[in-house]
Structures are given as structure tokens and as C-alpha cells.
Design a protein around this nucleic acid. Structure first.
Lengths: 327, 327
DNA sequence: ATGAAAGCGCTAACAG
DNA sequence: CTGTTAGCGCTTTCAT
């Protein structure tokens, strides 16, 4: 590993000059630049990122904190984030928080000590108070932290209304909703969307709403119970795709045919939708765009560029597959 | 952000002493240690990891290079790797290579400049020559690089034999194999296992082996073709779970019932197996253990500990689910 | 047991 | 246009 001094020596200039050509900054004569470049080449010199970090107090790294990369929504997001992070010259540090505030804070602190330049976080536990004296920018993904923190997410309320409407339009006469965990904003919003769409319909009853906790097996259990008590349910809007899978499993075990007897629509648009049988109709988030936008915003913030917009709310698209009757 | 100097000042000692208590190294009087600790506490001092890195030439970070975190095998692996990395006091950098040697090399170089302490790589493209002058340890995961590089993987050959045997024992009379890409060792080994198990059986023919490239849709296509030409195939060993899903899709479209008419067994044991209908029988890798072991080895290497063993080959376990007839 | 000082590799005044 | 130099915050000889 050669250093900037070695290069300087070979090129017969000072380290300052080498630094100038390295960073394309300040005046440097064309000939000496050539010499320096030749020296760099011949020594196969690579600048030391750590030394640079120490001086600049930034590391060209960003931290991504997700609840659990194992949840199939996150790999796609992480992929987008990693791609763009990299394209913009940064390096991605991945952290799994398990929705545990302690872990989140430990990660943030540890990465701060490494001069990480910013964070992208998916969290329901981290609040304004926890990040108030963070000196680097942070952007909230999927779930807002507070109004000061730039957020990129999706219009869950509208998406949920549309999903529900779709089921109604497809002729469903009694539509249930499997909601996600309380106090996870997207789950709450999707619930609200469903409710506002059906609350005035004659068949509506609060018992049609059950909690699947964004979890397949939990959903399977509660759905089996629900379908047993209300065998006339002919449509279910699941608060996410994972829970929609749970609904499929429940229907299967009860011998209910999808979509003939029961239409199911999910939410998120993860690739898992295409591997189930029947394949899942869903309200798809533009997952890649969301991740990508979050990084762009973060890097704008890091590099002190003006943000055109602080919050981005993407809309969600219906993808019709086999789990719903076509209208 | 206070520095070690601030602490020294408050504790009325030299920075050297502070450093000693920080690192629990060298002599330091009990009283002064107390004073220093109090100062650290009162200033809420956190040592600067970058400065430390610069001096020590190591960063307490490790790089994980996988083909694509979006492939459902990798999130589970990444999760294990991240967990253990973290438990051992390191930070994980995630890289998606797309099996592109150029990207792999770019990542390695970039991380080297950050003094990353070691790498865990899943690759079929990286060869000995590419890593020969890497100064930090590297461990190969899932696929070996060369005999010098510690490797943790699974006994693909035996697993494949057992998978095939299982189908035979379950009464299948004509068993096909959907293999993964050539020159990806696990795919080759699984193919070999299948072949050795069936090559002497009277029904065996080379046409029973098709290439699904570890890809769902490709597999669906080739399998449909195969099943059309050979409608008497009653068992398929898919080289991984993803391809097994493709097989399910193919059978579905052809109206072939699983497992009554066709038994399917996959390989890997990803969680996806539990979301399909029918749920997939598979030869499951101990994915978490594999990832975990890889990190342990890597950190042993980083910290100059003697390796008990350089290569680990885990065995693979049959998990019976709904896609195969029970014997 | 403690402190002074050099230096990890780089950048950015500042001088010239 | 180029060089000298002082750090960035930490660790580690080497004295004392």
C-alpha cells in the first residue's frame, strides 16, 4: 500500500500537489498533473479512505436500518438502496433492528463513531427525541418519524381504499380486513382506508376486522376463525402480502376456493405474490423507486443540496392476478 | 463530540492515560482510572472509530458480497451474518455483485480503502488470481473459491442423492431433475448427486435433466415442455427451491396434481417453501448456521486465532411437506 | 504509573 | 502554480 508521500516522491512534487490532482481541486500545472498521474499509476496508488474520513469527518457510508432483512419486503428495498448508494459513491451498512429501540440506538451510535454520513431508517419505535441530537441527516422510509424528518413512503390510505373498492367492484358482498400491527402507521392507514370505504355499507360490522400482525401464521389462525364464524365472507383485503398468504392458507385448509368463493387482495407487491397459488392480486408499492428516492434525498442532504421536496408519497398500483375474480 | 483530549483535560491526566483506560491496556492506577472514567461519563465521550482505524489499520467492519439480496436464499444468510458480525463487535457492509466480477472487484477495492477487516463472499466468478494480493482474510460461502480459501458450505452431493432417493422410496417411477446453472458448484454437485442415484435405473435418460438456471420462470417454461414430452414423469428433484416453485407453476398450468400425480422436492429450505401451495418438501440447508460459522471463521482469522478447521461442510436435512407423497 | 511526542495518511490554509 | 505545515483523534513507544 503506497501512500500519498510515495506518490509525491516519485512525481517529485509535494503531497499537497498530489492531493490537488487527486481531488481535482486548486491549480495544478498540466505537466505536473501528468507526472503525478503517472506516479499514481505506476505505484497503483489508492487513496486511503480512512485518513480522508478522519480529516473530513465523513465516511462516504450510509446506514440502512430495517426491522429484519428476512421479511420479504425489505430485500427489495435494500437492493434499491444499495444500488443507488453505490452509484452515488457511497457504501451501505446494513442493520437489522428487530423493531427494538435499543438496537436501533446502538447501531446509530456505533455508526456515528465511524462518521457515517447519514441514515435511512424503517422504524415504528424511533421517535423525534431519539434523533434530536444526531448531527447527520436521516430519512424515514415507509414510516414517518416526525414532521421534521424527510419521509418517503406510499399513500397507504388511498391504496387501501382502492383495494377495498376493487373488491366491491368485483362483486364481493362481504369484505373482511386483516390488519397489521397497531401503531405501525402503514397498518393503521390501510385499516382506515378500508374502514372509510365500507363503514356505511349495510353488511359492515367491526368483527370483520381482525389483526394478523403482518404475520403469516397468526393470520392463518385468525382468518380460519373468522371464516368459520362468517362463512359468507367473499372478499378479504389483507393489510400486506404476507398476511394475504396467511389468508390463502386458511382458505385452503377450510376448503374454500379462491377466487371463486373468496377473493383476496394484498398490499405491497413483493415478489412473493407471484410464487403463491393462486398468484396474489395486490396493491403494489414501487419499492425500488421508494428506496432509490430515499437515498437520493439523503445524499442531497449530506451534500448540502437543496431539497425540492421533503416528503415523497408514492402512489400504489393495482396488480391483478389470480386471487380475485375479474369484474 | 468530545475527544480524548477533552477527557484528559477534565480528568487531569494525559491522553495516553485515557487511552490506557479506554483499551484496558498497560498500567493505570486505580484512582486515576476512576477519575478518567468519571470524565468519560460526564462528557459522554465516545472514542472516534475512524481515528482508531487510521492508526490500527483496521476498521471493525466486514464486507459481505452476495449475488443479489433479492434472491430469497440470501436474506436469511445475510441476517445470520449480520447478527454474528454484530455480536462480535463488527459492522456489516452489504454488497450485491450480480455475479459480476467487475462489481466484485470494485467492491473489494473500495472496501479495502476503508480498511475493511475481511470479506465473506458468495461467488462463482471470483477466482484465486483475483484475491491473491488481498491482505485481509476472506471466506467463501456456499461456493468454494480455491483450496486455500476457507469455505463453509453444505454437502450438496449427498443432499441431492438423498433427495432423489427420497423420491424413489416414495414410489416415483420416473424422476426428472431441473438443474441450476453450469459452473455454479452447488448446482453441479446436486446434478451429480441426482445422476449417481439414477443413472443405472432402467428408466433413466439424459433428457430427464433440464436446466432451470435457478430461475422460476425459466424453470416453468422448460418444465412444461418436459412434462408435455414425458407425461409419465412422476417425480422432480429441483436443484433449488426457487426452481421447485417453477415446477409447481408448470404442473399447475398443465393441470397436473401435486403430489398425487407428481412429487416435487426442492433444495435449500428457504422460507418461501412454506408459502407455496402445496408447501414444498425440500432438502434444507442450515442457513443460519452456515452464515454464522462463516463469520466466526472470518473473525478468528482477523484476530489471528488458530482455526480448528478450515472448511466446514454442513449436512442438509429433509423437510417433508405437501409436495411429495408420503411413503 | 504516567506523560511527551511521534505518526497513521490525508486535506487545507497559508506562503511564496 | 507549488510547497510547508498544522492538524483530524487516536495509539504506542520511550522516557521518567
Amino acid at each position: 500500500m503506497s501512500t500519498i508521500r510515495d506518490v509525491a516522491k516519485v512525481a517529485e512534487v509535494s503531497v499537497a500537489t498530489v492531493s490537488r490532482v487527486l481531488n481535482n481541486k486548486g491549480y495544478v500545472n498540466e505537466d505536473t498533473r501528468k507526472r503525478v498521474e503517472a506516479a499514481i499509476e505506476s505505484l497503483n496508488y489508492k487513496p486511503n479512505a480512512v485518513a480522508r474520513s478522519l480529516f473530513k469527518k465523513q465516511s462516504k457510508m450510509i446506514g440502512l436500518i430495517v426491522p429484519d432483512i428476512t421479511n420479504p419486503f425489505f430485500p427489495q428495498l435494500a437492493r434499491a438502496v444499495e444500488d443507488v448508494t453505490n452509484q452515488l459513491g457511497y457504501t451501505l451498512v446494513l442493520c437489522n433492528s428487530d423493531e427494538d429501540i435499543i438496537k436501533e440506538q446502538k447501531y446509530i451510535e456505533a455508526l456515528n463513531q465511524k462518521y457515517v454520513d447519514g441514515f435511512i431508517v424503517v422504524t415504528s419505535t424511533l421517535k423525534a427525541e431519539h434523533i434530536k441530537d444526531l448531527k447527520v441527516p436521516i430519512v424515514a422510509l415507509d414510516r414517518p418519524i416526525n414532521s421534521d424528518t424527510p419521509t418517503v413512503s406510499v399513500n397507504n390510505y388511498d391504496g387501501a381504499r382502492n383495494a377495498t373498492k376493487y373488491l366491491i367492484d368485483a362483486g364481493c358482498q362481504k369484505i373482511a380486513h386483516v390488519r397489521g400491527p397497531h401503531n405501525v402507521l402503514p397498518a393503521d392507514e390501510r385499516y382506515r382506508g378500508y374502514l372509510d370505504e365500507v363503514k356505511d355499507l349495510i353488511w359492515y360490522r367491526p368483527e370483520l376486522i381482525i389483526n394478523g400482525n403482518f404475520n403469516i401464521n397468526k393470520t392463518k389462525e385468525v382468518t380460519k376463525k373468522l371464516l368459520t364464524v362468517h362463512p359468507d365472507i367473499d372478499g378479504i383485503f389483507a393489510g400486506n402480502d404476507l398476511m394475504a398468504v396467511g389468508v390463502i392458507k386458511a382458505a385452503e385448509e377450510l376448503g374454500i376456493r379462491i377466487p371463486e368463493q373468496l377473493s383476496i387482495i394484498g398490499f405491497d407487491g413483493i415478489t412473493l405474490c407471484e410464487t403463491t397459488s393462486p398468484e396474489l392480486t395486490t396493491m403494489a408499492q414501487p419499492i425500488y423507486n421508494i428506496g432509490s428516492k430515499a437515498v437520493q434525498i439523503l445524499v442531497d442532504l449530506i451534500e448540502n443540496r437543496q431539497l425540492e421536496q421533503k416528503n415523497y408519497s408514492f402512489s400504489v398500483d393495482l396488480i391483478e392476478r389470480q386471487s380475485t375474480r375479474s369484474r
